[in-house]
């Protein structure tokens, strides 16, 4: 039997999260851009000191989490559009999640090591 089923009753939270994370990332990008213009990266030590600052660490952490969530919704959308067989799609979803979670953990480790 092949019966088409739709009506998963989700989507609005992801849609909203994608927009919120986009705004957060845009603000972060502007802040970093301003910091670079203000000379935060004039030398390696200055750059290191800037990134080690508590507030910068905090917002960078939020940026990485936002990036991960944003990328998850976006990449999942691509799989949903182009990959039709459910088994391959689940595999790709899981791989995407693993890669993104791994990247986020790795990035946080780098930032907090400073």
């Amino acid at each position: 039997m092949s019966r088409l089923v739709v009506g998963a009753h989700y989507g609005v939270k992801d849609w909203l999260a994608q927009r919120i994370t986009a705004v957060l990332m845009a603000i972060y990008t502007l802040v970093i851009f301003a910091a670079v213009l203000a000379g935060a990266t004039s030398s390696h030590d200055a750059w290191r000191g800037f990134m080690a600052h508590g507030v910068v660490r905090f917002v960078t952490f939020l940026f990485i989490i936002s990036l991960g969530y944003h990328a998850w919704v976006g990449v999942r959308d691509i799989w949903m559009d182009y990959i039709k067989p459910t088994s391959i799609r689940i595999l790709l979803h899981v791989l995407t999640l693993l890669v993104l979670i791994g990247y986020a953990g790795w990035a946080i480790q780098i930032i907090w090591r400073l």
Partner: peptide
């Protein structure tokens, strides 16, 4: 709204 709250039906 229930009918449309779906990753395919609306959020494509």
């Amino acid at each position: 709204l229930d009918n449309l709250e779906d990753p395919y039906r609306l959020f494509r």
